[in-house]
């Protein structure tokens, strides 16, 4: 019975980490932005092998201006991720708040910067090393 409970707890922890990462990616969906209502600009590029079409790398950038509600959602999503990342760097000098989060497999580098009323999130997901 004890073993079952411990096994169940490991499963729940694993699932919660997976859901948290998907939560950041769910907030970074391109169809939610680039409209006047959200005051955002979203750009994305996908690098593919020109012959096979295999995805090599994805980069994206989201710029948010004067949207405190959305900034708060992203801050919460990043904080939720902190325990599960491989590298976490945080700097706050009062004017600019910077976070860099890196996962190893697959390699993801997510950067988050707030400066005044502007938030910039840039991501790199590397599926295949070149």
């Amino acid at each position: 019975m004890k073993r079952l409970i411990i096994l169940f707890m490991f499963c729940v922890m694993g699932m919660s980490e997976g859901f948290a990462q998907q939560h950041i990616d769910a907030l970074l969906r391109g169809d939610l932005y680039n409209n006047k209502k959200s005051n955002t600009t979203f750009r994305m590029a996908v690098k593919r092998d020109p012959v096979t079409g295999e995805v090599i790398k994805k980069v994206s950038e989201l710029v948010v201006r004067d949207n405190k509600a959305l900034m708060k959602k992203f801050i919460e999503a990043f904080k939720a991720e902190q325990a599960g990342v491989d590298v976490w760097q945080e700097q706050d000098n009062g004017n600019v708040y910077d976070v860099t989060a890196i996962w190893s497999k697959p390699k993801r580098i997510y950067k988050f910067r707030i400066s005044g009323s502007v938030m910039v999130i840039s991501t790199q997901v590397i599926y295949k090393e070149e």
């Binding site: 859901f19 969906r29 169809d31 996908v46 995805v55």
Partner: peptide, 13 residues
């Protein structure tokens, strides 16, 4: 997709 975002498996991969 627009009004009620749901978690999705769909991605470029």
């Amino acid at each position: 997709y627009v009004n009620i975002p749901k978690k999705t498996l769909l991605s470029e991969k």
